[in-house]
Design a protein around this nucleic acid. Structure first.
Lengths: 170, 170
DNA sequence: ATATGATTAGTCACATATGACTATAACGTT
DNA sequence: AACGTTATAGTCATATGTGACTAATCATAT
């Protein structure tokens, strides 16, 4: 259990919801903090239910097909706090992707390799532009801190890539 | 197919090997560039073989149980270059982990939350010390560039975390 | 009326990755 | 000769995550 479970439990803490709403909220408002997909959301809801952290009730809305409404249980509230503490305090070292290619860079003509790396820099810069121009978000400090996180990581990535190009032996 | 397949094909390009050697080399020499595990290595070898990018032959060594020796095929050589170009030129935006907790930080007493974040800073600094003191590696420029990558990312992480703590409203 | 697209609510096969486990042989030490 | 350790070579159950798919209802424009 990790951040994704924490995210779902936290959304249910605000109000009981069905799967669609959960996913919709994440897609619309938290796209810059989580990339969780719909099927994963439903999967987690099911698992959290089996573990007793969320309850399900059926809601019939006029003629619409019946919906599963999920709500957090007391055990879920406790788990939420446990996961929150864990999430705030833990740091996972992640192996950055994109480095393996550099190990074999000498198998390509130097100028071709450099062109690839420069294209890569441009991709990073394009993304940077998107995030840097993101409007302040209303959902809370957290989302803004998270966008700031991405921005500084992307800048670091860009600068490191540029340094790689420079430091490459002729 | 991605970086991991590229890594394996690249190691076979240098010389034909069996699964054990591949994994052993990665664990011993490339632990700072890839975190691929043994079972994954064997899995990739099998898949690459099924796709015709590596061939297998049996080698009997005295009384030892027979070994599968893997070697790269011409198709594998071509695939290697294709994957290398892709790896050098692509940039994947990755959602950084550890941000979800910040969204819910107000559910904990502020001082407790800050203690957790400070512990997290210490973890980052501990890792930073490990990588910063890593000796220059002989395998090639790539490995050193990769270590540099981790170091700058970790520094960014540390600084961002410190900023988070400061910017938190009282 | 009716076609189109958004809303709502999921399911399922599939790919990836790994931890835990099994086995044998060689080698050094006591 | 018994024993622990390392080298060797894998297999397998399991967990995670997602893309592609199905289906029904409702709102809106044509």
């Amino acid at each position: 259990m990790g951040e994704r479970e924490l995210l779902v439990l936290g959304l249910l803490k605000t109000q009981s919801q069905h799967g669609y709403q959960i996913n919709d909220f994440i897609e619309r408002n938290l796209g810059r903090v989580s990339d969780m997909k719909k099927s994963t959301a439903y999967l987690l809801l099911k698992k959290l239910n089996q573990s007793g952290y969320v309850g399900v009730s059926i809601e019939q809305d006029g003629n619409r097909p019946p919906k599963q409404v999920y709500s957090i249980t007391p055990a879920g509230e406790a788990k939420f706090l446990e996961l929150l503490r864990e999430a705030l305090n833990q740091f996972d070292d992640v192996t950055p992707s994109g480095d393996i290619g550099l190990m074999y860079i000498d198998y390509l003509p130097r100028d071709e390799a450099i062109r690839f790396l420069q294209e890569r820099v441009e991709k990073v810069e394009a993304l940077l532009a998107v995030y840097a121009n993101a409007p302040k978000h209303g959902f809370g400090v957290g989302v803004d801190l998270s966008i700031r996180h991405r921005v500084v990581l992307l800048k670091t990535e860009r600068d490191w890539l540029k340094q790689c190009v420079e430091q490459l032996p002729k």
